[in-house]
Computed example of a mutant assay.
Amino acid sequence: MGSNELEEKIYKIAAGIRRRVLEHTIKNNGGYLSQACSSAEIFSALYLSILNIERLKKPIAPGKFKGVPSNDNPNSTTGAEFNGKKSKVYDRFILSPAQYALVQYAALIEVGRMTENGLDDFNKDGSSVEMIGAEHSPGMEVTTGSLGQGISQAAGIAMARKLKKETGRVVLFLSDGECQSGQFWEAVQAMAFHKLDNMIAYVDVNGYQCDGKMTTVMNLEPFDKRLEAFGARVFRVDGHNVAALVALSTLKPDGRPTFILCDTDPARGIDVIKDRYPKFHYVRFTNEQEKEKYKQQYEALIKA
């Protein structure tokens, strides 16, 4: 597949992710919709180009929740199977902001890794397809807990892979809101100190968190300069520019963890969500008139 053809496919899958998450949000009277708007190209590029993972023979149907991992529960499973088998040469993908789980599921369906009906048991008792993803949820292999903890777990996995001389990377997806936490900065400092250059992190910098604009809650800017001061290698790109996202994934290691700051739009492709400014974090319809606006937006996307 040529580069132009691949880019077109990535954009097409990104559009599918947005449509699917919007459809799900309408059917369920709520959902993490702005996250799909801002990160669709990132997830699409991850699964179609960036991640070096096993190609599955067919989509996987999500199973039931089999309990948390413990010595007394040998039947517990993780959602890592949706990313293929583990190997010392394959990448490991860690989704840090678990509220992006719906976007992750939509991406897995769109790229053919999860069955088309994989969202049927979304957020139901006994299901692994949780609204806030955990280690057993499709595409996830660890529970990232409160915001800011995913990067620490990813760093631990990356260090273990270094010690075992595995060649596969740890690819991490982050949201900018969780980067406000102190644990995030402790992790970056440790990653730089231990020269974890087998780590690459894509950060969805959409400029908003649950309480509103990042710059008014706790400003991280200049985000790139701060990361560099902690010893990271940093690039800043348009997070909807597929060519830029893919190109940076092939950089050779240079002794530093790599961060790709992806500046994105939380209303990309779904303009109706702009009416919620500045609280984009979660869509919950308050009346039928409001829901109707989103239905009309969905119909427009279907026809596009």
Rank of each mutant, 00 (worst) to 15 (best):
G212D: 00
I260R: 02
H194V: 03
E7W: 08
A154G: 10
N198D: 15
E130S: 15
K64P: 01
L220R: 03
K124V: 10
V283K: 05
S181Y: 14
E228M: 11
K57D: 13
K295E: 09
N241T: 02
V170I: 07
Q35T: 13
E178K: 05
G126A: 03
L227Y: 09
I132V: 14
G269H: 01
F184K: 12
V283G: 02
R161H: 11
R20F: 04
Y105T: 06
K164T: 13
E290F: 01
N83K: 06
K279C: 11
G150K: 12
N71W: 14
A98K: 09
Q35S: 10
I109C: 07
Y47V: 09
T286M: 14
D271L: 03
A160E: 05
M218D: 06
L227H: 10
D91F: 13
L196K: 04
V272D: 00
R161M: 09
N29K: 11
V237K: 13
G126Q: 03
K195N: 07
R268N: 12
A243L: 05
S87C: 00
H240P: 02
Y100R: 08
Y298W: 15
F43P: 12
R276T: 12
E290P: 00
F223H: 12
F259T: 14
Y298Q: 13
D211F: 14
I151K: 06
E5G: 07
D121W: 06
S128V: 07
Y11C: 09
E23L: 09
G67H: 06
M114F: 07
H194F: 00
R18M: 01
K164Y: 06
L172M: 14
P69Y: 00
A36K: 01
T264P: 02
N28F: 11
P69S: 02
A187F: 01
F122P: 04
F230C: 14
M140Y: 11
C37I: 08
V188Q: 05
S128M: 13
G30R: 05
N198I: 06
E54W: 00
L48P: 06
L6R: 11
Q289S: 15
G156K: 08
G112E: 04
Y282L: 08
K295M: 10
L108K: 13
K274D: 12
A154C: 09
I42T: 05
S39L: 03
A155L: 09
M191K: 14
Q104V: 14
S152P: 05
A80Q: 14
G31N: 03
I53R: 07
Y298L: 15
L245K: 00
C37F: 02
L56I: 06
E135W: 09
I151D: 10
A15K: 04
V242K: 08
E228I: 12
E221S: 10
K27A: 07
Y47M: 07
C179D: 07
V242Y: 04
A304L: 06
P97I: 13
A201C: 10
I302H: 04
D72V: 14
E288G: 07
G231I: 00
D238C: 00
E8K: 12
D125K: 15
G269M: 00
V217R: 02
N75A: 13
S38Y: 01
F122A: 12
N206Q: 00
P253A: 05
F82N: 01
V142W: 13
R256N: 09
G212E: 05
A134P: 10
K291S: 08
R233T: 03
P138M: 05
I50C: 11
I17T: 02
G2Q: 12
G231P: 02
S137M: 10
G30K: 07
A192Q: 05
Q153P: 00
S44F: 02
Q289V: 15
